[in-house]
Every structure is written in structure tokens, then in C-alpha cells.
Design a protein around this nucleic acid. Sequence first.
DNA 1: TCCTACGGCGCT
DNA 2: AAAGCGCCGTAGGA
Length: 831
Amino acid sequence: MPQLSLISIVDGEYRTDLKCAACDLCSSPLLVTNCMPGTGPHNATYMIVGRSPDKGDDKIGRPMTGVNGRLLHEMLREAGINYNNCYFTNTLRCSPFETTIKERQWASCRDYFIKELEEVNPTVLIAAGAQAMTWLTGQTGLRKLRRRGLPCAISGQESRLVFPIEQPASLLNTRGPEQVVMRNSMVADLQWIREQTQSGNIMLGGDIPKDYRVAMTPQQADDILDEIETHDLLACDLETGSTEWEPMLFPYSNGRVVAVGFSWGPGIARAIPLYARGVDSFLLWTDKIYEHIKTRLAKIFREKKLFGQNFLSFDQKWVRSSFGVDFCNIDFDTMVAHYLLDEERGTHGLERLALVYTTMSPWKSLFALADTNNLCRYLCHDVDATWRLREVFEPMLSQKQKWLLQELLLPLSDVLMDVEYKGVRVADEALENLNGVLTKKIVSVTSRVRKRQQVRGWESVNNDEFNPGSPVQVADIMQNYMKLKCIKRTGSQAFSTDKEVLAHYNSRPFVADIEMWRRLMKLQSTYVEQTRRLLGEDGKAHTSYKVHGTVTGRISSSSPNLMNLPRNDTVAKILDDGSLIKSLFVPDEGQVLLQADYSQIELRVMACLSGDERFCGFFREGKDAHAATAAVVQSCLIEQVTKEQRQGAKKVGFGIIYGMGEESLIKSFVEEGNTESAARKFLSDHKTAFPGVWRYMGMQERMIRMQKYQETPFGRRRRYTEVNQESIRQAYNFPTQSTASDLTLLSIIRIYHAMKQLGIQARIVLTVYDSIILSVPMEKFWEVARIVKHLMESLSFHWLTVPIKVDLEAGMDWGHLKKVDLENQSFKSDI
DNA sequence: TCCTACGGCGCT
DNA sequence: AAAGCGCCGTAGGA
């Protein structure tokens, strides 16, 4: 034990000549003060905890008296927090600059801290900076935990409340207006903490009583299972874990379901562990008991009505692989429901939702010490939160949102889960070959770059190897060694070296090399290597789709992202054969890929939503919309429209959908070689010709001004906190992008179930925004093609007043697709 | 050592 | 800066 008398120095008496024997840091010659005690009154309301003394503190011998400390004092005063009400201390009493602290050293300081904490007994703790916060609460991510009361994670101190704030020192790293903004927000945070503390609003232990139980013995497991079986509706969650160090790759042969949890009411939770975790685990299930529990759980998964937090896209796969139940009866999902209520990205985490919508306190830190028992306690919190959140969210959903949940997002999640689970086949040999080819090319470009005279100069000046992947170094060479004029700046006003700039200067060999190097690296690192790394043991790519990933209602794809693979024409700029990337994705053995695309779906949706008669007419009459637009604006016959005129009309069409400002539209016209007056005339003629379109756009702006949100025909909403140029552009784009996406999503569900019902072995392998790709047995090809086209085109809604059209393509891999001619049952030559 | 921000770039 | 994404490597702070 450390000498506890050291920290009893409070109430204004300081000593700097103390010797602490708890660790050896005190003896560092870099330090003036040895074992710096805290300072301030007993029973202070606020105990302010930094990481360690800074140099100024060390010189003076008291915490938070240096530059940083003075800053903090100023801000405290501005926030209305009285200095006499504060006790200042640090997690570490001695911390020689740039010394790595060992666990033993941390531990000895912790004992001082606990003693000090108990003596001072503050109302709340304020953690100054991320490190102090982590030390006190076990949690990371200071930004997202601002203005949050967290439980202290130090053993025996769990009932104490910790408020994190940014480290005052971070102010010193900024300048000018940014510094003012940051400082204001820090003062505001302190003010908020004062208000919370004075009002007593945030209290730990203010939650309802908890009835959590963990099965520690086989008998208890059976009792809990008996109990679960008496309920028909259960919140459910699974904890899974890797049995090895490697990440889990499908089909998760190195992963296990570690525990299963259920809840059937607020504050009620049960957890059943299945697989021992951590050295302290109590779990000693024999194989026989394990199988017995598994069988009983499988019955629950098959028969009960369940709901969870993102259950369908995560837990369901494990239920399938570990319990043999392919689909559960899921009637709700708290994450998806919250997404419908609030589309903002990254706000759907379970703990966050529980903090906002229930009286629960954070429990995430339990996971850090996740032996079997703690993991099960963690799981109990999860399912309890899930149950409570359903009670909160369900009544909040509008009729349309209920429809979206039940008829669109839950069925869609089922389908996407199945699509992800089965995966898409990858031509692994071709993948390896391509990787080799790219490696060779990159090596050669790299060595060529390093022989360039400018690079040699740079290397000798900097005494370092030039890295073509460093925008800083590339900019340095272009600006200072080649004396190239800056034509574009980055967000931080640095010399931009993006592809536009490189293209501008690519007559210079060095710049051309960098351009090629970047393209090659992009192909290799983002597409080839990532695909390789994430390939399952079955040689397939198992992407994961998110239905809650975007503010517009589009789905997103990740690990690997199969929605941004480079098109053939892009790859052709880099490699001789442009199909090399997409052709890596192939149908199941002996089958063929069928791709069904909605043609110009966003434009059609825009026509419907705006109700512009002329624009709708183009689609009803089956005209080429862009050419027809050009014909109207130029007052000529559609046959007389030149390629350039059509291109111009197309630009306006998309410009409108994307909320492009008039000035930028005109600018892009001029860049294409038109005169400014011609561009202006085109635009004003367009407005005259399509008044409905422009009226509709104006309506969107009024909508977000008046009610602060928009709603699509399907009931998707997008909220806006303020109205500015950015939000107005978003408002122009949202209804079309969202509604077009929903049409594809509904089609995915319909196609999936049609194939199932008809017993056809064709399956959806991919989907990219407006297209659906299936792997189809050869002999069923024409039948499937006909069904898919029909299903997609026959969607019918009262607002859908123009026909929607689907183009079909097919091929033996994704890189070689040919147009399908259904009439003649033939394929048209290369596209 | 980890984490975050940034510059950059692929797709619809 | 024309909407919406995911992911790469670098750079810098903690």
C-alpha cells in the first residue's frame, strides 16, 4: 500500500518535498515535484481530474496551475463554477514527460486517487480529457460522450458520476476563430454540468429495479428456459465471439455463440451462457448439457415471436449457423424503428438509445472485462434495453412508418440476410492473377517515380524515402520543386493534388506517374486486396448490407463494399482489359448472371412527384427523356437533337435532382464549350417548358421551412435542424433518391419470394441501388428473366403515374454483360 | 499503441 | 463546392 498520509493534504496546505515509494517515477530527474497531491476543499462539489501534471504544474507543485490550469480556471469562472467549490487532482501524481506508464505505476496511483476521492467525497467528478475519462469510466470516445453523466468504473466507486470535458490543452492547438468556437463550447459544457449538478437531474441508480438472472448451473439454465417458454413475445440478443485471434470470416467456423439473452418486460432479463470466455469463467458445461440447452433454445427460436436490435442482419445469421433455424418470427426491431423515427447516421446504437429514451445508465464498459459472467450481465442490459425501447418507439411510429417497418424493412432485412449469408462467388484464381499484375505494375511505377530528378532532389533534402501515397509530399514536390501553380486548395487551404489537379498537369512525367500510381493503388488496395481479405472460407464474398445506413433510405454495403466496384470504362483507363475487376464476380456453378436495372428511375420518380405534364408525357410515350427535353427547349424535332444538346439536357436533369445551384449549372455548361448566354437561355427555356418541375422544387424548400421535415409517398422522412443552402439542396434530392430506392427494395422482396414460391433455384446475389443481380440456372433463364422484369415493372401506386421500365442484361460474369432481348430470346452484342 | 481527421476516390 | 455512400493511406495527437 502507498503511504496514504501523502494525499491527506487538503484544505490549503501544500508540500512539494514528499517522497512516494509506490513506484519509481518520483525519482525522475525531470520532475521538480514528487507525488503531487490534489488541492481544494473537502466536500467540494466538483472534483476535477486531469491525466497528469503538466510542466507548469510540476514547477509550482500544485495541480492545474500551469498554462492549461489557468485556462481551465478562467472557463470555470465563466461557467459559473466557483473555484472554492472545486477540488483539483490528477489520475497520475508523477508523470515524467514522454514516459510510458506501466500498469504497476498506474495501479499505485489509483490507490492514492481512491483514498483522495473518499476523503473529498465530491458530488460529481469532471474528467478533463479523453485519457482521464477512460481511466475513470473505462469508456472511450470523448466526443460522443460529451454532456453525458457516466458511472465511475473504479472498483467500489461505481455510484459516482463522471462528466467528461475536453482537455483545456486542446485549445492551445488551435488558433483564431476556431479557438473561440472551441472555447465557447467547452464553457457551455461546463455550464451544462453545473446546471445538471445543481438541479440533480442526472442521477445514478435512478433506474427501475432490475430482475436480471444468469444461468450459472445446468439446473438454473433449465429453470430459465422453462420461464422463457411461458412467454410468447421476447426481446432477444446473442453475444458471439471468436475462438482465435483472427477475425471471423464466414461461415464463422472460428466463432461461437457465447451467450443468449431474453427479456419479456422492463427491467427483466435472463442470460444463458454457452461458451466459456475469459480465465475467470464459471462455465463448465459438458457436451451433453450444451446440446440439451441448444436444442431447447432452437425450439424457442423456431416457435416464439421475437424482436431485437438489428437482429435480422446480425443475430439471425448466427441462429441459422449455430441453431439450424433459417428464419425467426421477427415482428419488430428497435434499431430499424429508431432509424425510421430519426434517420441521422450513427445514432442507432443500443446504449445511446437507452440513455436517451430510458432511465438506464451506461453498461457498455462491462464488455471490456467480459469474462462469461460480465458478458452475461452485459447481455442482460442489452435485452432489457431492447424491450424498453420497443415500448417507447412503437407508439411513436406513424401509420406509414409502421407500414415501412412491417412491409418493407423487416422483410427486406430477411432477404438481405439470406443474400449475405449465401454470398456471391468470386473467381479466386483470376483474383490472385490480378493481384500479381497490379503488384508488378505498382513496383515498376514506384521505381520509375523514384528515379525522377525532382524526387531525388526531394529525398536528399528531406533525407527520407519519397512516398507517392503522401499528398503532403506530392504537393511539396509539385509546388516547391516543379514550381507548379496551385489551381485548387484542400479544405485546410493546402495545395490540392486531387485527380483534377493531376489531370491538369499530367503532361509532366512525374505528375502522370503519380496519377497512374494512385489509380493502381486504388484498384489493388480497395478492390482486390479487400475482396481477398474478406473472402469467406467458401470462396465467396459475403458483404453486409445496412438498411439503416443512409439518411435517404438507400441501403449501403460494406466489408466488402460491393456497391462501388469500378465500372469497366474506369478500369480501362488503368488496365488493358477494363472488365478485370467486375468479372471477378461470377454466378454459382453452372449458372448465369442476370442483371435487372431500373431505367432512369430517379427521373421517372421526379416526373411523378412533380406532376409536370410534359415531363411525365415523355415517359408515357416511351421517349428518350433527355433528347425530348432538349427538343422542347431548343424548339426542334426530337430527331434533330444533337448529341451535345442531349448531353446538356441530361446535365440539367441530374442537376435538378441533385439540387445544383443555377450558377454552378451555368458554369458546368460553359465548361462544356457553351457560351454563358446560351447556358442562361437554356435554363430559362427549361423553366418555361417544365414549370411543374421547378414548382415542385420550390415546394420542397417551402416544406422544410414550414415543417422542418419532408415525407416521401412511402412515408420516409428526413428532418432538418436548419434551413440553409446545403439543406435546400438536400431537400431537392431526398424525395427522388429515397422513393426510387424504395421501388428497388420492394422489388427485391417480391423477386425473392416469387422465386421461393415457384421453387426456382435462382437467387439474388447482389443489389446496387437501382439494379438487382441474380444467379440463375441456365435452363430457367428465360422464365426468370420474364418474371423479374414483370415483377419490377408491375409495381403499382397511386402516385406512380408513369410506367417504369427495366433493362435486362446477362453474362457469365459481372464484367461481361450483354443486353437481353426477351422478345427474340437472344442477346445483343457488347454494350 | 490506438484513435481521429483529412485528402482522396470508387459507385449510383 | 451538385445528392448519397464506404474505404484507403497518411498525418498528427494523445
